[in-house]
Structure formats: structure tokens, C-alpha cells
């Protein structure tokens, strides 16, 4: 019997490699055609993909629907913007954003993890709205106008220094951050801890009977999701040069959920596919018709009706079968070569 989680994760990695490949080809095209807009749009799609990834950690693995994940994205973005306006240091901004979202994630987790199901969805929604309204009415945080004036950063990366104003360099930096986050989260879910989280989704009442604490893993899952959202949120002001309370509004959280559903729940990589697809669709369709929201709504409905497991869900089963066959063949070959018996 093969480990299904292992096969599933390997299939996800293949899809990640495919996305990377497509991304790099598109980047090469963009550079060749001297485009900056689509390169920066792609960067934004990846950043929003981080928020979607955070939703998928909760929804796809913990079985918790968060309707307020933009809260942590927004906190990361605001902390990063506030730091950068004072001290234009990439590392300081990232460290501060990580620290503050860690704290916020723990506080939010203590509140939200007291309840389950629809109440969890409502409480996460409520927390995000409360904080968004506080920011909206706080003069020191720019209130409804938001904060502008985040400088174009020079980012020292050991041997080289890249500029956030250089579309290609910043795209590659964002891609690297997302790769690290994806790899870390994927690794986390293959550890025993990750399996407990997945077990929680399957049947929370049985987990204690197996001797595991349920509160701890769920809490860690929530905080990790908050961190992923906060870290990618910190990249937003570096790309766009401003933050506004709209980043925390329900529209952002809701969009992230749509991205995950479109890409495929519980696949991690589906979140990134969904983010890229939705961001580009919105941008392209929006330029052709003023009824773009209708078009996107219809696409979403059709996606749910005909691809309930998302884009990744369509291709994943056959890929998994291939991976299993490949494993069996290599096993068989090894047995043949060494002469050992299965």
C-alpha cells in the first residue's frame, strides 16, 4: 500500500514545476516584448496567490473556512508599509511583518478556534471587518485614504542587490518567496503534525481517541496560515507603493476563497493556479466589458458545476495514477536488478 498523502504531494510538486515552467516562459516572452505591465500583474497574482495559499492551508487541510484571511494579509502589508516609510529596509520590513502577524495570528487563533464550522467562518469574517473598520477610521494609519509614499526599495540579497522597481527582478524575488512558502507548508503537512491536522478535518472527535491533542495542531495550523498571508502581504506595498484598508475588506478575503475553489481545494498549488487565473481574467475581461463581474461570476459557477475539485482536481487523478505506475515500475526494476523479493 502506497502512502496517498505522499503521492498527492508529489503530484502537487509536479504541478508546481509546471506552473514555474509556464511562469518562466511567460517572463521570457514579457522581457523579449519589453512589457512591464503583465510582469507586474504576474507579480501581484503571485502575491495574491500567497493569500489564497493561506486560505487553502485552513480550508483544504484543517477543514476550516476562513472568510477573513485578508486580515493577516492586510496586517502584513500595513506593517511593511509603515516600516518602509520610516526605514527603507527589505529585511526589517519582512521581519516586522512576520513578527506582528505571528502575534496577530496567535490572538486571532485563540478567539477563532473556540468555535467550529459556520461559526468559525463568521468569527473570522467579523474579526477582519472589525480591524478593517478600525484602520479605516484611524488617522495615523491613513484612514480611508490609505498610506502612500512607500519608496521603491533596493533589496540586498547577499551577493546581488535587486530593485523593487525592476519588474523582472521583483517578479523573480516574489516567485522565490512563494516557492519557499509553498515548500515549507508542503513539508509541514507531510510531518506527523500535518497528518494530525488532516485527521482533524476528517473526524475531529476521533483524534483524541488516538491519543492526540486537537487544540494544539489546529492552533498551529491557524498561525501558519496567518504567517503565510502576512509574509506575502508584506510584499504588496513593495510592488504597488501603497496600502489601503480595502486590502482587508471582505472582497479580498472572498476573492482568495474563490481562487482556492477555482484552483482546487486541498492541493496547495491550486491556490496559486487560481490566483493567476483570476487575476489575469479580471484584468483582461475588465478591459473589454463593464460587465466583467458577471462574466467572472458565470465562469465561477461553471467551474463549480463541472470542475468541483478545481483545475488541479481535473488533472490530478491521472497524474497520481502515473506516479504510482512509475513507482511500481522503478520498484520492479530495482527488484529485478538486485534480485531481492518484494
Amino acid at each position: 500500500m502506497r502512502d496517498r498523502l505522499d503521492i498527492s504531494m508529489r503530484a502537487n510538486h509536479v504541478f508546481f514545476a509546471v506552473l514555474m515552467g509556464i511562469g518562466l516562459i511567460c517572463v521570457a516572452l514579457a522581457v523579449a516584448m519589453n512589457d512591464t505591465f503583465y510582469l507586474r500583474l504576474g507579480t501581484e497574482a503571485l502575491i495574491l496567490g500567497g493569500l489564497a495559499l493561506s486560505v487553502d492551508i485552513l480550508l483544504g487541510f484543517g477543514g476550516l473556512l476562513s472568510l477573513g484571511q485578508a486580515l493577516y494579509f492586510g496586517i502584513g502589508a500595513y506593517v511593511s508599509a509603515l516600516v518602509l516609510r520610516e526605514v527603507p529596509s527589505f529585511w526589517l520590513a519582512m521581519a516586522a511583518a512576520t513578527g506582528v502577524t505571528l502575534l496577530a495570528g496567535i490572538i486571532g487563533g485563540l478567539i477563532a478556534n473556540r468555535v467550529r464550522g459556520v461559526y468559525f467562518a463568521l468569527i473570522t469574517f467579523g474579526m477582519a471587518q472589525v480591524v478593517a473598520k478600525v484602520v479605516y477610521n484611524t488617522r495615523e494609519l491613513g484612514a480611508s485614504d490609505g498610506l502612500i509614499g512607500v519608496p521603491v526599495l533596493e533589496i540586498p540579497l547577499g551577493v546581488i542587490t535587486v530593485s523593487a522597481g525592476d519588474p523582472l527582478a521583483f517578479f523573480l524575488l516574489t516567485l522565490s518567496v512563494l516557492t519557499i512558502l509553498y515548500a515549507a507548508v508542503a513539508y509541514l503537512f507531510t510531518t506527523p503534525f500535518g497528518r494530525v491536522v488532516i485527521a482533524l478535518k476528517a473526524n475531529e472527535k476521533r483524534v483524541p481517541f488516538l491519543g492526540y491533542n486537537t487544540w494544539g495542531p489546529r492552533m498551529v495550523c491557524y498561525v501558519v496560515a496567518a504567517l503565510v498571508a502576512g509574509i506575502t502581504g508584506a510584499l504588496y506595498p513593495m510592488l504597488r507603493g501603497f496600502v489601503s484598508p480595502e486590502l482587508m475588506f471582505f472582497a479580498s478575503s472572498g476573492n482568495a476563497v474563490i481562487m482556492v475553489v477555482l484552483g482546487g481545494v486541498g492541493t496547495l498549488i491550486g491556490a496559486l493556479y487560481g490566483a493567476v487565473l483570476l487575476t489575469f481574467l479580471k484584468s483582461v475581461v475588465g478591459s473589454y466589458t463593464e460587465h466583467h463581474l458577471i462574466a467572472i461570476g458565470v465562469i465561477f459557477i461553471f467551474a463549480i458545476l463541472f470542475m468541483p475539485k478545481g483545475i488541479i482536481g481535473v488533472a490530478k487523478p491521472s497524474l497520481e495514477r502515473r506516479l504510482i505506475r512509475f513507482d511500481e515500475q522503478t520498484d520492479a526494476a530495482r527488484i529485478k536488478a538486485t534480485g531481492e523479493r518484494a
Binding site: 505591465f37 507586474r40 500583474l41 501581484e44 504597488r240 489601503s244 480595502e246 484584468s283 478591459s287 463593464e290
Partner: peptide, 18 residues
């Protein structure tokens, strides 16, 4: 040349760049 800003600064900035 029209673009929809959706009254959202993040959308507006992206469309402005376009």
C-alpha cells in the same frame, strides 16, 4: 479609454499601470 476602478485603490493602481 475606459477601465473600471471598482472604487478600490488596489484595482485602480493595477488598471492605472495598464
Amino acid at each position: 479609454i475606459y477601465e473600471d476602478s471598482e472604487a478600490n485603490p488596489s484595482v485602480a493602481v493595477q488598471k492605472a499601470e495598464k
